Computed example of a mutant assay.
Amino acid sequence: MAITESPQESPHVTDTSAPEKPHKVDWLAEIRGLALMLLAVLAFHSLVAKPFYIPSTSMMPTLWVGDRLVVSKYPYGWSWASASFHLLPRGDWRVWPSTPEYGDIVIPVHPTRDEDYIKRVVALPGDTIEVRGGQIILNGQAIKREVVPPVRIPFEPDLICRGAPCLDAFDQYRVNGADGREYYEPPTWRETLPNGATYLTIDYRDQRLDNYGPYTVPDNAVFVMGDNRDESADSRAEAIESGLGGAVPLANIGGRAEFITFSLDGSTTWNPVSWFSSLRPERAWTTLRPPLAEESAAQ
């Protein structure tokens, strides 16, 4: 008798698990993470270092319009001026205070406006400073000041001058270079301060601020000037004239300029090619700490 096997029936399996729910974004955690990141950046900019852009000609020839540089926040301690965006109320307190040295390039804040300047320290607390015919006199002694060959600054009127008065002032010193480009070659001087710090300045005309003082710098303050002596609103100029109105309290100094990171000549457009062609490669990583006179002579 033949035995016929009946095929086994496959058991029917039913999936009783719940469908997987779509992942929900924890927006509170995302916002908290973003806030912490922003606070970290703000703390770094306020306590350690921040970038700085040069918008004017007041520190030429040391700094050109279009330079980007790093400002360190800790060399003189911290104060209300250290905080980015000037978020803290003004005051005369300082934490771990220190005094700038002759020749340092610092970031003073205007006495009444929350506006950052960039200038060079030329007199320290207790010094008596005069300016006579453009010559700095410290404590009765004229600092060393000598004529040197003119600096050469590229002719970039749209970027450097941003207006007819500046262009007119420099126009008499415009020359044609052997490379076919135009340059400014204004009268240039080398100054040397009592500690040996040496740097170049531009002084090409007689004007009111060429004569100033005598003025005694108060305690916990410094006297600052721009390297472009005829185009700088600094300690020599009144606050209502956009100047700094005398010596700058140390609590009003937000940091020290250290070095140039990169520089753009103003020809940058939407075209990515211009992002590279507008670079001034020779200015990148230039230190802004003034050399001492013996170091400069050895170079």
Rank of each mutant, 00 (worst) to 15 (best):
I3R: 05
P7T: 03
Q8C: 01
Q8I: 12
Q8K: 12
S10M: 03
V13R: 12
T14L: 14
D15G: 02
T16W: 05
T16P: 00
P19M: 08
E20L: 15
K21F: 01
K21D: 11
V25R: 14
A29I: 13
A29M: 15
L36S: 15
L36F: 13
M37Y: 13
L38I: 11
L39Y: 01
A43K: 00
L47V: 14
L47C: 10
K50P: 00
K50S: 10
P51A: 09
P51T: 07
T57E: 15
S58N: 08
M59V: 08
P61L: 02
W64D: 13
W64C: 04
W64V: 03
D67R: 03
L69E: 02
V71R: 01
S72L: 15
S72Y: 11
K73Y: 11
P75D: 05
G77A: 13
W80H: 15
S84I: 14
F85M: 11
L87T: 15
L87D: 12
P89I: 13
P89C: 09
R90G: 13
G91R: 05
G91W: 09
W93M: 12
R94F: 09
W96Q: 05
T99P: 04
P100E: 09
Y102M: 09
Y102T: 06
Y102I: 08
G103D: 13
D104H: 04
I105Y: 01
P108C: 03
P111R: 11
R113P: 00
R113A: 14
E115S: 08
D116V: 03
V122D: 03
R132P: 00
R132D: 05
G134P: 01
G134W: 06
G134A: 03
N139C: 05
G140K: 08
Q141D: 06
V147T: 08
P149A: 12
I160R: 07
G163A: 06
A169K: 05
D171P: 00
R174G: 03
N176G: 05
N176Q: 06
G177K: 02
D179K: 04
G180M: 06
E182R: 09
Y184V: 01
E185L: 00
T188S: 14
W189F: 15
E191C: 01
L193V: 02
G196F: 05
Y199G: 03
T201A: 02
T201K: 01
Y204C: 04
R205D: 07
Q207M: 06
R208Y: 09
D210R: 08
D210S: 10
T216M: 11
N220T: 01
N220E: 11
V222N: 03
F223G: 06
V224K: 10
M225G: 02
G226M: 08
N228S: 06
D230I: 10
S235H: 09
A237P: 00
E238M: 07
A239P: 04
E241M: 14
E241C: 06
E241F: 14
E241T: 08
G245A: 08
G245M: 12
G246A: 10
V248S: 02
P249C: 05
A257S: 13
S263Q: 10
L264F: 14
G266S: 12
S267H: 02
W270Q: 04
P272W: 15
V273H: 04
S274E: 11
F276S: 07
S278H: 09
S278E: 11
L279T: 09
P291A: 12
P291Y: 02
L292T: 02
A293V: 15
E294A: 07
A297C: 02
A298L: 13
